[in-house]
């Protein structure tokens, strides 16, 4: 029912393409994150779904209904799309108390006062704000205003909920707990969610699928596990998690590390010429006795639960993170051996 489809969506401002050829089909009840650095077009896409921006090209559909069709010049007004939205700045109306803020969408629908109050209180219960019902926004903390905004977006039981960096203005602890709360509410209401964020851990923990965006282009759409382990390109590998890039040359079915042709890895993508090897710091095992690659310990940073090493391998500095390691296991200048667990490879300048 609440499937959302974006077909060949483009947004141009003059000569600048803010969003280029965005395609996705979102299933009913799915939690999708748009993830990317600022200026990547994720918020613009969200605002096109909401109806605050008009796509330059393409079709947007909710279920079977077209809500935006640039070719026909048809754009349904935001208020007619039946969507709930939470804004980055919360956008809680300062001149209305919590009940009036949350009840506003129902008031527009002419829901009778008593029924309205009942539904508002249910929502406030859900977001744990029942005791604050009579307060004005200026008497609430940032986190509480955030919950008011969430309750307001949900009160009319929309089938689609849009969240625009909703947690970015909260402090770290609160951000984490709100993450799980939003997920719980989403599961409970069975609502479809589009969640815009630049915080990869938010996207990883909450989403069914992640859309990684950069410079107006969709780089990859996939489950969090796939995005992390099988990034589509260098940009995605770099943006999600930590990664070492090592210049290399691909020949036939092997890829050779630059600086030492003796070290090579399989070439599943059949790359040719200049390439890049990528390996995540926590997917490298260190040892004193032997391994794939030999290196010299360069620097150590003690992190408490782990040690963050820099190992010099030929001309490259490789970052290695070992969980539960002791600070003095290795000494600076000591020869160490590295085993790579999951080596990824990309063509250069993809």
């Amino acid at each position: 029912m609440a499937e959302l489809k974006l077909q060949h969506i483009y947004k141009r401002y003059g000569n600048v393409t803010a969003v280029g050829d965005f395609n996705i089909e979102v299933a009913d009840g799915e939690f999708i994150s748009f993830l990317g650095p600022s200026g990547c077009g994720k918020t613009t896409t969200l605002r096109m779904i909401a109806g605050f921006e008009k796509p330059s090209e393409g079709v947007i559909m909710i279920g079977d209904q077209e809500i935006s069709n640039a070719e026909k010049g048809y754009f349904l007004a935001p208020e007619k799309r039946g969507i709930g939205m939470v804004f980055q700045s919360y956008a809680v109306w300062p001149h209305m108390n919590v009940i009036d803020n949350v009840g506003y969408p129902l008031k527009i629908q002419n829901v009778p006062k008593e029924e309205r109050l009942k539904q508002v209180m249910e929502m406030l219960e859900l977001v744990h704000l029942k005791e604050y019902a009579e307060r004005l926004p200026s008497q609430l903390s940032g986190g509480q205003q955030q919950r008011v905004a969430l309750a307001r977006a949900l009160v009319a039981k929309p089938s689609l909920l849009l969240l625009d960096e909703p947690l970015s203005n909260l402090d770290a602890k609160l951000r984490e707990s709100m993450r799980f709360e939003i997920s719980a509410i989403q599961k409970e209401m069975g609502i479809t969610v589009i969640y815009v964020t630049h915080d990869q851990s938010e996207a990883m923990t909450m989403s069914d699928r992640i859309v990684v965006m950069s410079m107006g282009k969709v780089q990859q759409i996939g489950k969090p596990y796939d995005i992390y382990t099988k990034p589509a390109n260098q940009m995605v590998a770099d943006f999600i998690g930590l990664v070492n890039f090592i210049p290399a040359t691909a020949k036939g079915d092997r890829i050779f590390m630059q600086g030492d042709e003796a070290i090579s890895f399989p070439n599943p993508k059949k790359l040719a010429g200049e390439a890049v090897l990528a390996v995540r710091p926590e997917q490298i095992t260190l040892s004193k006795t032997g391994g794939m690659v030999e290196g010299v310990m360069n620097h150590r940073f003690y992190m408490g639960d782990s040690v963050d090493y820099r190992v010099k391998v030929k001309d490259h500095i490789v970052r290695v993170i070992q969980k539960g390691a002791g600070y003095n296991t290795y000494q600076d200048g000591e020869t160490v051996y590295l085993d790579f667990d999951n080596v990824m490879s990309f063509a250069k300048d993809e």
């Binding site: 007004a77 939205m85 969408p105």
Partner: peptide, 13 residues
């Protein structure tokens, strides 16, 4: 966004 929040809540311009 204060105005946009009203629009998305179903209110006409």
């Amino acid at each position: 966004t204060l105005e946009e929040a009203a629009r998305i809540s179903g209110s006409s311009p």
